[in-house]
Design a protein around this nucleic acid. Sequence first.
DNA 1: TCCGGATTAGTCC
DNA 2: GGACTAATCCGGA
Length: 142
Amino acid sequence: MFSVFWEDIYFNVLVENGAVVRAFFSKKPAFSTEDGEFREQIEEYFNGKRVEFNIPVRLKVSPFTEKVLAEVSKIPYGRTAAYSEIAKKLNTSPRAVGQAVKRNPVPVIIPCHRVVAKGGLGGYSAFDIKIKERLLKLEKSI
DNA sequence: TCCGGATTAGTCC
DNA sequence: GGACTAATCCGGA
């Protein structure tokens, strides 16, 4: 486990048996900022030098949520998808997608910030809606 | 064009 | 079983 500093907040990653099990933002580092298996990849991403992660994740979520998250991780870098688009692919409702994405235990690595509402931005519960905006801006600027 | 209600499907308590 | 959603559609003003 480790923390990465990004502009004015920390991104904390919990690693268990070589796979990421959880990630979250915080104002103060939850872990050491010195070491960590995948720290370099995260740092590169926040610097705009990396477009995709080579990081194994271990999800402890329901089968439905897992399907939604798998679909979300297919969204290419710098692009966004609407809740309704994901829902159409999985033959479900946008609302259910929103719930599943909200329960994503590893934001950024699974790019839940690329999922937006049709007429706006949608929401972001990982820390703050501003993080979502910043992440999208970061990817758009590449 | 903008706002509000009905609808929707999955999860948590 | 009931009450939540990181949503969307549609009709009325």
